[in-house]
């Protein structure tokens, strides 16, 4: 009898899992596996994957890295050990994404804190406001942002009126960073807000009671306790930023290249699917390792305090 109930129960669980599992397998696991397979294929004359199997796509990436130590002072000290087209691309992508994540965090934290301290009714309204951008297509919003920063766009018109020299940042890494911060802000605010909303404010009183000033209360008590939201928000910002394409394309105006844009090019203009797939796989592995290390560091820090 009990056996039967157990069996029925596990059947039920299987049944409940089926739609999700099916979806993930068909639309996530199989395509990913397919990309992996393509990355080991050669290209035909049109750029599509074809036999025979080869390691050459990865070989190109490895051969790209050259040991070439150099120190330059071109607009700031730059020390580098290695050189390489794709290495540079990857490095720039990681760096811009890192800066983006930090800036997004610095903007999102006060906003999330402010929202979490509002009365219940206002919190709902604020959440709604944060989510409003999702109702408009991302591409359209990025074009709007592009328009804002144009030479004769609204920002420069205002600056001009104030007698301030115009901003000429369009098609620079700064513009790309602004675009990425703008696009990812809600993904940082929402998990942070969720963490902060659950935060027990008595904790800060307890810290203060035990002699901690505002600064130490924040770093020793609040930050570790909202850590999960902070980690989630950072990952949700960093990972899409590394592989971002539309923002780089538009805000960079074709002058700024990042790894995501380069991969896209392999599937279109450069017509080399297998090489594009190999780049995707390498990027995925690197980002995964970075995310895991980040999570580890976050957890380690929390255990240490």
């Amino acid at each position: 009898m009990i056996q039967q109930i157990r069996e029925r129960k596990s059947l039920q669980i299987l049944g409940l899992m089926f739609p999700g599992a099916f979806w993930l397998i068909v639309f996530f696991a199989i395509p990913l596996l397919w990309v992996l397979v393509i990355s080991f294929l050669s290209r035909d004359d049109l750029g599509f994957p074809a036999q025979p199997f080869t390691l050459d796509n990865y070989g190109t990436l490895v051969r790209d890295i050259k040991f070439n130590p150099s120190i330059t002072f071109d607009g700031g000290l730059e020390i580098r050990l290695f050189d390489g087209l794709y290495l540079d691309l990857l490095w720039r992508s990681l760096w811009i994404s890192f800066v983006t994540t930090i800036i997004t965090l610095l903007i999102a934290f006060p906003v999330a804190l402010f929202m979490a301290r509002l009365p219940k009714r206002w919190r709902t309204i604020m959440l709604f406001l944060v989510m409003i951008p999702f109702w408009t297509n991302f591409l359209v919003r990025t074009y709007a942002l592009l328009f804002m920063f144009r030479g004769n766009g609204p920002i420069n018109v205002v600056l001009n009126g104030l007698g301030v020299p115009p901003l000429d940042i369009l098609f620079t890494p700064t513009a790309v960073t602004i675009g990425l911060v703008y696009g990812n802000l809600p993904f940082m605010i929402l998990p942070l807000y969720t963490s902060l909303e659950k935060f027990d404010w008595t904790m800060l009183e307890a810290a203060s009671d035990l002699g901690a000033n505002t600064f130490r209360s924040f770093f020793r008590v609040m930050l570790p306790l909202v850590g999960p939201g902070l980690l989630a928000g950072s990952i949700l910002t960093f990972v899409p930023a590394v592989g971002s394409y539309i923002t780089v394309e538009l805000m960079g105006g074709g002058k700024i290249n990042m790894i995501g844009r380069s991969i896209a090019a392999q599937f279109s203009d450069a017509a080399n699917w297998p090489f594009g797939s190999a780049m995707s796989m390498v990027l995925m592995v690197i980002v995964t390792i970075a995310a895991v290390l980040y999570f580890r560091a976050g957890r380690g820090e929390r255990a240490a305090v």
Binding site: M203, A207, D209, L225
Partner: peptide
């Protein structure tokens, strides 16, 4: 005098122990 400079300590109703410590 702010709380963190007073020589008094509190046992909170909810205890307010730091859960991460």
């Amino acid at each position: 005098t702010p709380a963190f400079q007073r020589n008094v300590n509190t046992v909170f109703q909810s205890y307010a122990l730091f859960p991460h410590m």
